[in-house]
Write a protein that binds this DNA or RNA. Structure first.
Lengths: 141, 141
DNA sequence: AAAATAAAGGATATTAAGGTCTTTTTATAC
DNA sequence: GTATAAAAAGACCTTAATATCCTTTATTTT
């Protein structure tokens, strides 16, 4: 459904968000240890998220990553769009460029239900929701 | 959502199914012209579907591909599983191997709704449904 | 039987995703 | 101000998906 980059990104963000509750910033190594993601690849993903202002970062000693705005202002939709783009939220199930209600593909109406469910889910859930009941070992397997 | 191979495969199958209503068999070139899919790549996909008994084929002059069983016996689930595997139908949204109701990832319950909708949609729709109101120009864009 | 046709199979190319490493830049701590 | 720590940036590698081509095999038509 989502790319690896997106899976890693979401996992890393939950870890950053959770860490932010206590000591504000958290570094790459700790993030990856907790999120169980490959370090250098995750670095690239986070660099991108910094550019897109989803998170902030600080260089140098005692630096690290942090969530700049309120957790409930960052939806799953925002995150997925930032990493994978919005294609998944709009694309035709059969890959047609011009598929719509007037010129529907054979799967159009059925697939739309699934896509709508995905859209709703991503728009109705934010980082705050994701870290509800979060504990450090969530990804420990 | 689905791979290119899967998109092409579904499109090709609808074309084969529709052609089957009249003259029974249809060859690669015609399939790809109607389904708007790349010829050699589609050939590979169909070879796979033949092996999996989703369709039949016949070599030689006046040969081609055809649907062996009743159209309503081939669900979208069967097709997707044959081409992409069943991963999409069971996989954790965050890519964890051992994510379940007892040890859920932070997205578990929410993502499950989306996945269930996809499962239902694929199990409740078959090739016959897909070729309802089908016309040769569906993919002509 | 021979010729022609169409799928099957195998080999190879291309592209994009996933992943790693090294160097550079910036900020902090001392 | 110097040393150090950490992110940013850029180069590079690997793997899997996508795509194409060529040869072989099977079947039908003549």
């Amino acid at each position: 459904m989502f790319s690896k980059a997106c899976e890693y990104g979401i996992r890393a963000l939950t870890v950053i968000a959770e860490a932010g509750k206590e000591h504000k910033k958290i570094g790459m190594k700790d993030i990856c240890k907790l999120a169980k993601t490959p370090e250098f690849f995750t670095a690239k993903i986070l660099q991108n998220l910094v550019k897109q202002k989803i998170i902030g970062s600080q260089k140098g000693p005692s630096g690290g990553f942090f969530i700049a705005k309120d957790l409930d202002k960052i939806t799953l939709y925002d995150i997925v769009e930032a990493i994978d783009g919005k294609e998944i939220f709009v694309k035709c199930g059969l890959g047609l460029d011009k598929c719509n209600a007037k010129k529907p593909c054979p799967m159009h109406s059925q697939f739309e239900l699934v896509r709508n469910e995905l859209n709703e889910m991503c728009r109705n859930n934010n980082l705050e929701d994701l870290v509800q009941g979060f504990h450090g070992e969530v990804y420990n397997r």
